[in-house]
Amino acid sequence: MPDILVAAIALIRNRRVLMVTARGRDVIYMPGGKVDAGETLPQAAAREAREEVGLALTESALSEMFTVVTQAHGEPAGRLVRMTIFLARTGEQPVASAEVSELHWASTAELHRCPPAGAEVLARLRRLGVID
C-alpha cells in the first residue's frame, strides 16, 4: 500500500497551534489534507488551509518544518500517512469552513484527542519549543 501523502499547516499563536475538528468526528487534526495529482506539497498546504480554515496563504508564507510518518488513522494496519508540516505566517484570523465544525488552539495537553500523526506533530512542536 502506498503512503498517504498529506500537507498541513502549523499556525502558531500564543504557544498554541491551530487544529480543527471535522464535522461528525471526535478527533482534532492539523488543517491539511491529501496532495492532489500534479500538486506540490506547499500548493496542497495552501489549498487545504483555504478550504478548511479560510486562510489565503501564498507559498512564500509557508516554511517547511518537518515530515511525520506514522500509522494512518482509520486505515488498515501498516497503511502509513506521510504528513509534511509547513509553518504558516499570516495575520489573518482562521474561520471554520463547511468541512470543519470547530477550531482549536491546542497544546500537548490535547495529545489524547489526536490521531497518531497529529500527536506526533504536537510532540515535535513542543520539542522545538514553539508550543506548550
Rank of each mutant, 00 (worst) to 15 (best):
A7M: 11
I9F: 01
I9D: 05
A10L: 02
A10I: 11
L11V: 11
L11R: 08
I12M: 08
R15T: 10
V17T: 15
V17Y: 07
M19C: 00
T21P: 01
T21G: 03
D26G: 09
Y29D: 09
M30C: 09
M30T: 14
P31V: 13
G32K: 06
V35D: 06
V35C: 04
D36A: 14
T40D: 09
L41E: 12
Q43M: 15
A44E: 09
A46F: 11
E48N: 14
A49R: 00
A49P: 06
E52D: 10
V53E: 00
V53Y: 09
G54W: 07
G54F: 08
A56D: 15
T58P: 01
E59D: 06
E59R: 14
S60D: 11
L62C: 00
L62W: 02
M65V: 15
F66Q: 01
V68F: 05
V68E: 13
H73D: 11
H73E: 13
G74F: 05
P76T: 11
P76L: 14
R79K: 10
R82L: 05
R82D: 04
T84I: 07
T84H: 09
I85A: 01
L87I: 05
L87D: 14
L87T: 04
R89S: 12
E92K: 06
E92F: 06
E92Y: 08
Q93S: 15
Q93V: 12
Q93M: 11
Q93I: 09
P94S: 00
V95N: 10
A96N: 10
S97P: 05
V100R: 01
H104F: 13
H104D: 07
A106R: 10
A109L: 12
R113G: 04
R113H: 01
R113M: 14
C114S: 03
C114Q: 10
P116D: 07
P116E: 02
P116R: 00
E120V: 07
V121G: 03
L122F: 10
L125G: 01
L125K: 09
R126Q: 14
R127V: 12
L128C: 05
G129D: 07
G129A: 05
V130M: 01
I131V: 13
I131S: 01
